[in-house]
Amino acid sequence: MTVGEQSLNLLEYMPFSEGTKAAFLDKPSALQLRSELPRIDGATAFYPLYASFVQAVYPKDGNYHPHAWDSLALCSTTSRAYDSLLAGEADIIFCFEPSEYHRNTAAEDGITLQLTPIGREAFVFFVNQNNPVESITSGQVRDIYSGRITNWQELGGRDENIRAYQRRENSGSQTTLIAIMGDDQLIDPPTEHVFYGMSDIIKAAASYRNYENAVGFSFLFYCTEMVRNSEIKLLAIDGVYPSKETIQSGDYPFVREIYAVTAGDESSQVRQFKEWILSKQGQYLVKQTGYIPVK
């Protein structure tokens, strides 16, 4: 059942490619990097974002294929991106916060991770479109994923067991779920309820025949713009529906920072790149891509 994140056509966002969906600036970038280019990696959900950065700042003739091992703008998923950063194989990655495993690994290796917020995004929960439940509370999310609530009837739905999907350990979305659980212990799911890619968890919840009783999680831009599966619906949390407006206002409760992450000493090019991302032009691309700027 697992097909992996490469089922998404990230090539649609590849910098400088014909018809790319990566966002453009309305005038040339104030920063132009031409030598000692930072090696980039990151989460699947953020490839469209850092592809737009590369398109604005990097030279046109580079290798920016999302899946090529020697690419300057690789997309290997959150966990692998942190592995690459800690191994010195990437200079800057674009992800959510690191997992406990990656924090501990960095500390054991004497590496200081520097997390620079560059944008904001909503962590969302979704169900099959035929599920009558429209809204749950933050507490009920924790109750579901700790095993205290196990039937949709307890949430105003049908008398069906809840199939609570999770992602693999150290993925960006699974790390976010663990963070919002707080002191509540996350249940150990059956193997068939754990998915490698975010696209897989969306497809499973969208399946009418077998998974109408499922709940899953992802990020707003990813599931509404990159996957666009009409067979799922997003749940309101604490009565607030996830949208750009409710992220911006702070009304939606599960908003996370998007980080540019570096490890140890930064080169001059990396420092300039980070400063530019936080400039008016960089933040413009954050907004044009579909995320919420921090400035």
Rank of each mutant, 00 (worst) to 15 (best):
G239C: 10
H102E: 11
L234Y: 01
E245A: 11
I40D: 00
T289V: 04
N210F: 10
R142V: 09
F46K: 07
V141N: 00
L25N: 13
D61M: 07
L220Q: 07
G157M: 10
S17L: 06
S268R: 06
Y196F: 15
L234M: 01
K287G: 12
E266I: 10
S243Y: 03
E12R: 14
P253I: 00
P242D: 00
T262S: 15
F96R: 08
C75L: 10
T78C: 13
V54I: 14
Q185A: 12
R209F: 14
V127S: 04
F126K: 02
A205G: 02
N9R: 03
R80E: 12
N9I: 05
K203I: 01
G157P: 10
A22P: 01
Q248I: 10
G119C: 02
E231N: 14
G250L: 05
T44M: 01
E18C: 14
I162H: 01
L235C: 07
R148K: 14
L31H: 11
S279H: 13
A214G: 07
T246A: 03
P253M: 06
Y259H: 08
T150Q: 04
Y211E: 03
P189L: 15
I178G: 06
L177R: 06
V294T: 09
T191G: 01
C75E: 12
Q32P: 00
Y145I: 01
A68I: 03
Y259V: 03
S29Q: 04
F273T: 09
D26K: 13
I149L: 13
S268L: 08
Y64G: 15
Y50E: 08
C223G: 08
R168I: 15
D159R: 15
D251E: 10
I201A: 05
F221S: 05
D61N: 12
M1C: 13
R256K: 15
S7G: 10
Y145V: 02
N131K: 12
E275A: 13
S218V: 07
W152A: 07
F24W: 12
S79D: 00
A106K: 07
H102G: 04
L177M: 15
T176F: 01
C223F: 05
K203E: 06
P190W: 03
Y196W: 12
D200T: 08
L72D: 04
I149G: 11
I187G: 02
F24M: 09
